[in-house]
Amino acid sequence: MSTEILCLKEVAMRLSGIVSEAYAWPQQPHPEFHLEFIVCPGGELALDFLCKKRAMFWSEFANEVFETPVKQNGEPITWQDLMRVGIPFMS
């Protein structure tokens, strides 16, 4: 899997055929933080923003949790969806 860092706009474009049109993508909270998907131990995905310089997630920094995108059928997206469209993720 690539370690490429994608901007929020690129991620939204790549997932446009999968993610529900009703889903509201979060705004990048700070220029130093970039979008990350994390596969949790149970297999579900978490969406967060990571600052590599500070080695800190936005959820830790600001105690803010972001809604993970959902598919058009209302189910949460999966790591397999991310792989299919070439979006890197952490596990």
Score class of each variant (00 low, 15 high):
residue 33 F to L: 01
residue 89 F to Q: 06
residue 36 E to G: 03
residue 86 G to M: 06
residue 52 K to W: 14
residue 51 C to T: 05
residue 26 P to F: 05
residue 61 F to N: 08
residue 30 H to K: 02
residue 54 R to I: 15
residue 73 N to V: 10
residue 81 D to T: 00
residue 56 M to Q: 08
residue 56 M to I: 13
residue 81 D to V: 00
residue 47 L to Q: 03
residue 64 E to N: 03
residue 38 I to W: 14
residue 33 F to K: 01
residue 41 P to T: 04
residue 83 M to K: 10
residue 52 K to E: 15
residue 80 Q to T: 08
residue 72 Q to V: 12
residue 42 G to C: 09
residue 74 G to K: 04
residue 33 F to G: 04
residue 43 G to N: 07
residue 51 C to S: 15
residue 80 Q to C: 02
residue 81 D to Y: 02
residue 90 M to T: 10
residue 65 V to E: 15
residue 59 S to W: 02
residue 88 P to D: 03
residue 68 T to Y: 07
residue 51 C to V: 10
residue 28 Q to I: 08
residue 30 H to V: 06
residue 45 L to C: 02
residue 42 G to I: 11
residue 55 A to R: 11
residue 85 V to C: 07
residue 55 A to D: 14
residue 48 D to G: 00
residue 37 F to K: 04
residue 71 K to T: 07
residue 66 F to E: 04
residue 35 L to W: 01
residue 72 Q to I: 08
residue 56 M to W: 02
residue 75 E to G: 03
residue 88 P to H: 03
residue 44 E to G: 10
residue 72 Q to W: 07
residue 26 P to H: 05
residue 63 N to E: 10
residue 83 M to H: 09
residue 50 L to V: 11
residue 27 Q to M: 12
residue 48 D to E: 00
residue 42 G to R: 00
residue 45 L to Y: 08
residue 54 R to Q: 14
residue 65 V to K: 13
residue 62 A to S: 15
residue 31 P to V: 15
residue 31 P to L: 09
residue 65 V to F: 15
residue 37 F to P: 00
residue 69 P to R: 01
residue 48 D to W: 00
residue 75 E to N: 11
residue 46 A to R: 13
residue 55 A to I: 12
residue 41 P to S: 03
residue 73 N to C: 10
residue 67 E to C: 06
residue 72 Q to D: 10
residue 49 F to W: 00
residue 70 V to Y: 12
residue 27 Q to F: 02
residue 77 I to P: 05
residue 85 V to Q: 01
residue 74 G to Q: 09
residue 64 E to P: 03
residue 51 C to R: 02
residue 45 L to S: 07
residue 70 V to N: 08
residue 53 K to V: 15
residue 31 P to Q: 12
residue 78 T to E: 07
residue 32 E to L: 12
residue 45 L to N: 04
residue 40 C to I: 05
residue 40 C to Y: 10
residue 66 F to Y: 09
residue 62 A to P: 09
residue 80 Q to Y: 07
residue 72 Q to E: 11
residue 62 A to K: 11
residue 41 P to N: 07
residue 56 M to N: 12
residue 34 H to S: 07
residue 78 T to N: 02
residue 71 K to N: 14
residue 76 P to D: 13
residue 83 M to N: 09
residue 43 G to S: 10
residue 43 G to K: 09
residue 81 D to S: 05
residue 65 V to Q: 08
residue 64 E to T: 07
residue 55 A to V: 14
residue 40 C to N: 14
residue 28 Q to F: 00
residue 34 H to F: 13
residue 53 K to C: 14
residue 76 P to I: 08
residue 30 H to A: 07
residue 66 F to T: 02
residue 80 Q to P: 04
residue 50 L to Q: 09
residue 83 M to L: 06
residue 77 I to N: 01
residue 40 C to W: 01
residue 49 F to E: 02
residue 43 G to V: 13
residue 59 S to L: 04
residue 60 E to P: 01
residue 60 E to I: 05
residue 77 I to D: 07
residue 40 C to L: 14
residue 73 N to D: 15
residue 86 G to F: 04
residue 69 P to S: 08
residue 89 F to V: 02
residue 65 V to N: 11
residue 32 E to N: 13
residue 56 M to E: 12
residue 45 L to V: 06
residue 50 L to P: 04
residue 63 N to G: 11
residue 63 N to Y: 04
residue 88 P to F: 00
residue 59 S to F: 01
residue 40 C to A: 12
